[in-house]
Design a protein around this nucleic acid. Structure first.
Length: 431
RNA sequence: UCCCCGGUAGCUCAGUGGCAGAGUAGGUGGCUGUUAACCACUUGGUCGUUGGUUCGAAUCCAACCCGGGGAGCCA
């Protein structure tokens, strides 16, 4: 007997096959029963006729609790009446396990309930679609960099000090008398790797102990950070642009079905093409003034400012050259105008906010050392980082992309928490 | 840390001072092409917690707990 999956059922039209899955829904109508079986690859309607079974078993079948595990064997056949166009006749059915009353129903549920049942919520068709898109984005990321001769060099998760010194850090007892912190960026290590291998990226979990409670924040999220030697801000912006276009095109090309399940407006993703608008901080603040949006020059963009700027365009927007005071110590100053740092943020359209932050790094030893002192950072902790400027320093730069924000944007979903299998949020760590 | 909103059946919610409700899920019965199937009947309650006001509190007041959205910060 051929064991197959729902996704491949159409390839077996007319053949008798076996599907192993779970009962998603059922509708019985006296002497005929419709069983919707999901197996993770999709859902298929299976039709069971009472005359083919003994009465006791058929009755059990028509009252089988949702999410009971079943193995169904029978002929697959195309049928217009079936959701999905293919259905199965049930010749035999093995009940692997009878489910207890399943808490998640077809109706709408609140976030508290769904998050407490995340381990079960993952089975819902929208969540399946989101996880498949997440998988596609992850593979697109790796393929993109592989095709461009970057190599994956992951940075450590335990770190001895803050990379940026701004955000809150998670502290862990590393040894009996030594503390460590969970990484909030792999960037400094990436710079070392870029000096070793030219073009690198790291891709892994990142931890921020900020007390953020918004639809755009997780305490544990995945970040992809490329870093290039012999690169300037323009190279970083070019790479960001190509990168986002590549991801969007891959999702549209390979995950159309999932986007439809999510009722995503696919035209919004198809229209992501380069070039993206590039605005300097100065130009962006002028735009705000022109449109009567109040903003004080010199401040960092708050969420409403970001939303305003990105609302002016249908595509992602790159805002570059921010006042150096509001950017990290390692950012290189703009040689054309010392007030600004060579950083860039990419704002996704449709209100998804900042998905990329990056820029060109300071490559001069003395300037960097002065910067570390000015930020009152412990210089000895950064000796290895300063070494990168002692031994063959070159212009270099890179950026960080937030995976879940990108996935949420691709999926058109409201909350970043659905873009990761088990979200870690403020005041919520179960399950 | 601050601001706003919420907590009533397994779930989604109605109920603003006077008998604790609906839909759905669950149960029982019916139905041979259903599409969140449908029809009939039915089980199901620490009204977040504690205290207060009142003849009487899910409802009014206070404190606390839990959750959600947002600010700041960030991807």
């Amino acid at each position: 007997m051929t064991i197959t999956t729902v996704a491949r059922l159409a390839e077996h039209d007319g053949e008798t096959v076996t599907i192993r899955g779970w009962l998603q829904n059922r509708r019985s109508k006296g002497k005929i029963a419709f069983l919707l079986i999901r197996d993770g690859s999709g859902t298929v309607q299976c039709v069971a006729l009472k005359k083919n079974f003994d009465e006791e078993f058929f009755d059990k079948l028509t009252s089988l609790p949702y999410e009971s595990a079943v193995i169904v064997t029978g002929p697959a056949k195309a049928d217009e009446r079936a959701p999905g166009g293919v259905e199965m006749q049930v010749d035999s059915l093995e009940i692997v396990s009878v489910s207890e009353e399943y808490p998640i129903s077809n109706q709408e549920h609140g976030p508290d309930f769904l998050l407490s049942n995340r381990h079960l919520w993952l089975r819902s068709s929208k969540q399946v679609a989101i996880m498949r898109i997440r998988d596609e984005v992850i593979r697109a990321i790796r393929d993109f960099f592989h095709e461009r001769d970057f190599i994956n060099v992951d940075s450590p998760i335990f770190t001895p000090n803050a990379c940026e010194g701004t955000s809150e850090l998670f502290e862990v007892q590393y040894t009996e008398d030594e503390l460590a912190y969970l990484s909030q960026s792999g960037q400094l290590y990436n710079e070392a790797a870029a000096m070793a291998y030219g073009k690198v990226y790291c891709f892994g979990p990142t931890f921020r102990a900020e007390k953020s409670k918004t639809r755009r924040h997780l305490r544990e999220f995945w970040m992809c950070e490329p870093e290039m030697a012999y690169a300037d801000l323009e190279d970083v912006m070019d790479l960001s642009e190509d990168f986002l276009c590549y991801i969007a095109q891959r999702v549209v090309a390979h995950r159309k079905h999932e986007l439809e399940v999510l009722e995503r407006d696919i035209s919004k993703l198809e229209s992501i093409r380069k070039p993206f608008p590039r605005l300097s901080y100065e130009e962006a603040t002028e735009k705000m003034r022109e449109h009567g949006h109040e903003f004080e020059f010199g401040n960092d963009f708050g969420a409403p400012d970001e939303t305003f700027v990105s609302s002016l365009y249908d595509s992602p927007v790159m805002v570059h050259r921010y006042p150096h005071e509001i950017k990290a110590f390692y950012m290189k100053r703009d040689p054309q105008d010392d007030r600004f740092a060579l950083g860039v943020d990419v704002l996704a359209p449709e209100g998804y906010g900042e998905i990329i932050g990056g820029g060109q790094r300071e490559d001069d030893l003395e300037t960097l050392r002065a910067r570390i002192q000015a930020h009152e950072l412990p210089e000895e902790a950064f000796e290895w980082y300063l070494d990168l400027r002692r031994y063959g320093s070159v212009p270099h730069g890179g950026f960080g992309l937030g995976l879940e924000r990108t996935v949420a944007w691709m999926c058109g979903i409201e909350h970043i928490r659905e873009a990761i299998p088990f979200p870690r949020m403020l005041y919520r760590i179960y399950p």
